[in-house]
Design a protein around this nucleic acid. Structure first.
Lengths: 183, 183
DNA sequence: ATTGACATGTAAGTCGTTACATGATTCG
DNA sequence: CGAATCATGTAACGACTTACATGTCAAT
């Protein structure tokens, strides 16, 4: 089973959602950790329903809009998600296109490379700000007395994001300095 | 054109290589930044030759082994690589399966989650050690008087890897502590 | 005797992306 | 008046993975 399916189960384990909700959460709440388009979500939801991992929770009707088909995770879906979560995970490659370009920086005039690094730096500063806001908000709503609060898990993952963005920003700075000293 | 093609050009811009060499370098020298199997490399090399981005450099014959077909980058391939390298790069998602599992940790008994984190930590400690060795070796062979030495670019990318692994290790530690305090 | 390194590739299948298709409502 | 949001989905294509296929030498 593809990990995309587990990403969907991950969201549905917390609350019932429609395909549209899943899309929104992946592209905002889950932030840039995971992404998806409708093309993948709706067929996958149908397959998951067939496999008994999710079930129709309710259908919200609206006069002018298509009906919202809200799904919930089933017991067997939850078991499958837990089984997968406890499984060891294969090492992953970073596979960042910009790093590949950095690997080619020796081919490029430094004056032309530096604006790209400044650009990237700004992009990651933007993400950092978003994550910091998010973690602050999560800290406000988390229940510290409940060791099983899903929000606590969310916080840990967003904290990873924060550290990652900081590292990226520092690396850009470091790289820019190097290029300036060599040019 | 897929970024995989540019990954191949990136390596060929430094020295002529066979398909087999490319595979080796992607899975070792380029470390876990990019990966590839023979299935992707050989057909792609053929297409790149057809497009005039690379050309046969020489064919090394051996009695018992298949002939080594060594390719070099062409002028037009180099121009294309430079053009791509200077182009702005789209933001990327992190898409780390283990982070997705961490997002589900609220579902799991802490005693069962901690060994997974210890495991991951060890994995990244291993990668860190490899990168540190690599950067030390690169620093030994880099030519500091040449601002266009490709090795200098390699060093910057490996340095990113080092910081990334350190961050991952720290995050694992941090997460383990949190789980212990809640269990 | 078996595994691993060398060296090329093919075939089949799944995963993922971009674009398309529909249609009313609200906001600027 | 145009764009964005809500809400579902399909079609076509390209990327990527897993497994297959072949064959010799060197090392354990």
């Amino acid at each position: 089973m593809s990990s995309f399916r587990y990403a969907m189960l991950t969201l549905l384990a917390r609350e019932p959602l429609s395909g549209y909700d899943i899309k929104q959460q992946m592209n905002s709440r889950m932030g840039p950790f995971w992404k998806a388009g409708s093309n993948q979500i709706y067929p996958e939801l149908a397959k998951m329903e067939e496999a008994g991992l999710v079930a129709l929770h309710e259908i919200e009707h609206n006069e002018y809009r298509p009906a919202r088909k809200v799904y919930r995770i089933t017991e067997s879906g939850k078991e499958e998600l837990i089984r997968w979560t406890m499984e060891p995970t294969e090492p992953e490659t970073i596979k960042d296109e910009f790093l590949l370009k950095a690997y080619n920086s020796w081919l490029i005039d430094f004056e032309k490379m530096i604006p790209r690094l400044e650009e990237k730096k700004k992009e990651h500063e933007g993400k950092l700000a978003i994550y910091v806001d998010k973690v602050n908000e999560l800290n406000r709503i988390v229940d510290p007395s409940n060791p099983r609060d899903p929000i606590a898990s969310s916080i840990s993952v967003v904290e990873f994001g924060i550290e990652y963005e900081k590292l990226y920003i520092q690396w850009c700075d470091h790289f820019i300095e190097k290029l300036k000293n060599n040019g």
